[in-house]
Design a protein around this nucleic acid. Structure first.
Lengths: 342, 342
DNA sequence: CTGAAAGCGCTAACAG
DNA sequence: CTGTTAGCGCTTTCAG
């Protein structure tokens, strides 16, 4: 065990290793990087000296010299603590680590101003690629960077005012599947709860749902649309209000995981008193199986992996047209979505 | 909207800005950093030129020149996709961003070898501080770095063979609280499920639990100890076996969130057939309130914040003795832990 | 195979 | 107030 926090010692440099080994810095560099020719004799001397001094290269210096950019990648997501986004981060990380690239993660809180600031900071650090879940209204400023060779990949939502590689979920397909499933179950008074005025994903999901209704010539669901569920608490309140109607909906489609959570909270208090409405939620929940909640499931980590793969391809020189990859979503039946209408 | 992915243009440098503005690089640097004296005349010229070229400093070059280390911090956790660890990451990030420091995140998968590799990589990148959830058996190698001025903070578990700032949960206290609560509920045949052979946290939690039993002179719980629940599936299996005993336990204490999840899965299938055993789990669950599960709750994000704060204090020159901070844990009553013995 | 030397882009004395 | 000049630590020609 060791004690005192402080006995500052300067970090050894290549030059010091060279002196101790009695060779030039060039030789040290060659031996340590193993890329050029060198004799085993000097190699031994260098390795001994390096070990003795506890030498570690300074990657900053290396990357500066090598011109170009670094071996880091920046990821901007809404909030690292949200499982959807941390799933993305994990997927990205998996691909990157395998390639020796390191990941900067930053949460934007969905704030365009913060997103811009953080982006600039990453650019100043010369990230080798940038992965962004866009919140800003305009991403034109990234165009300059791309023109300078920076691969940019957008996740979860398409960017505004720019074209670029984009990884999306199958939002519309999921919404359609949810709508069809509830219709098949015999429901007509189906309430859809979301915040689709703001988000691309919600707009797509609700469009898919509406499409399912229209294809089936379903009527009766329109009065139950609610588009102001901005968090779990407000979603809970909205569901309460819906169920208090003279003719309440017999089914609910909630557009994301926190809205689903709010709806579940509203329903649990009704329990034995009355028949529960059916419920299908977009996004899976952490212990969804234990909650018997039917959902439109998708794989955030896979989306992260795809984004990273795409960025790597661009780094490797892929100059093909921009890709838009859609990650599939699918209905997972667990009970809540299969309750019959009253 | 813009199209073609590629029209490579080199990034402008300070020198180019200087030439365009008709001043020296020193002046450009001074203006852009706003730290030294300069005239408004040259400032205007510089700013115009910089804007025109779309100049952005190269932080790598800046930090190399300024000697010392960078403005990045490294965080090593088990798995970014696990809510406990991503919570820590989020807390760390919150403190750091406020100070203009950027965060490298990396998942070790609890693999000591990978932890070592990733650590070395971060050191080579000259992180300004290192935050680690240790998995390795020996962290002596970090001592060298600390001697060179690197603040290192350990989270969740104490390191081996070194002393250092350490942020821990109140594991023993939580285990004790869980034990007492179940005893107070009248239980005697209490099963404890964990993996405490491997992990510090589990050892502490079980020690706290045992302490509660001993203080109360409780007997009858010992036969129900199980220490091999390495994941949700094996925990589920263990609970099944326990409940199949001639004299099954009337209560369960599960030592972490996945073990709790496994236990819940085992219990749900018993439902109406028989009386359910009481259950208290260490770690909160994402929608714990909806699952009616009583838990020992704690705040991972707070632990991350504390770790970051400590690292920042060290960066700012705090040379006081190493700190060990214990983040409180508390019992949250939600129903599962209050079921009476059969 | 090896050394000398020229920078990567920037900051920080040091003279004006 | 401003320009000149040394490097930060490393890689990479270019000659030996």
């Amino acid at each position: 065990m060791s004690g005192d926090p402080l006995t500052l010692v300067a970090r050894p440099t290549l030059r010091q290793v060279a002196m101790l080994a009695g060779v030039s810095v060039a030789t040290v560099s060659r031996v340590l990087n193993g890329d050029a020719y060198f004799s085993e004799v000097s190699a031994a001397k260098v390795r001994t000296a390096a070990a003795q001094l506890g030498f570690r290269v300074n990657v900053l210096a290396r990357e500066l010299r090598s011109g170009a950019s670094s071996t880091t990648v920046g990821l901007l997501i809404g909030d690292l603590a949200n499982p959807f986004w941390s799933g993305i981060a994990r997927g990205v990380e998996r691909e990157l680590t395998a390639r020796g690239l390191r990941l900067f993660t930053a949460s934007t809180d969905e704030d365009p101003g913060l997103e811009w600031t953080l982006t600039q900071d990453m650019l100043d650090r010369r990230v080798r690629a940038l992965l962004v879940v866009p919140s800003a209204a305009d991403h034109g400023y990234l165009d300059v960077e791309r023109r300078q060779g920076l691969p940019v990949v957008f996740l979860d939502r398409p960017p505004s005012n720019v074209l670029g590689d984009t990884m999306l979920l199958d939002n519309a397909g999921g919404g359609r599947a949810a709508g069809q499933h509830l219709l098949n179950g015999g429901h007509r008074r189906i309430a859809m709860l979301g915040d689709w005025s703001r988000y691309y994903t919600h707009r797509e999901r609700s469009a898919g749902f509406r499409d399912a209704m229209e294809r089936a010539h379903a009527v009766g669901w329109q009065p139950y649309e609610r588009d102001n569920a901005r968090d779990a608490a407000s979603a809970e309140q909205q569901v309460r209000e819906l169920l208090a109607l003279a003719e309440p909906p017999t089914a609910l489609f909630t557009l994301n995981n926190w809205i689903t959570a709010g709806a579940l909270r509203a329903l649990r208090n009704l329990g034995a008193e009355r028949t529960l409405p059916a419920l299908v939620g977009f996004d899976d929940l952490d212990l969804g199986d234990l909650l018997d909640v039917s959902v439109i499931h998708h794989d955030a980590e896979e989306m992260g992996r795809l984004a990273a793969t795409t960025a790597l391809a661009r780094i490797d020189g892929d100059v093909g047209p921009f890709r838009t990859v859609v990650v599939p979503s699918r209905l997972v039946v667990r009970g809540s979505g299969e309750r019959p209408p009253v």
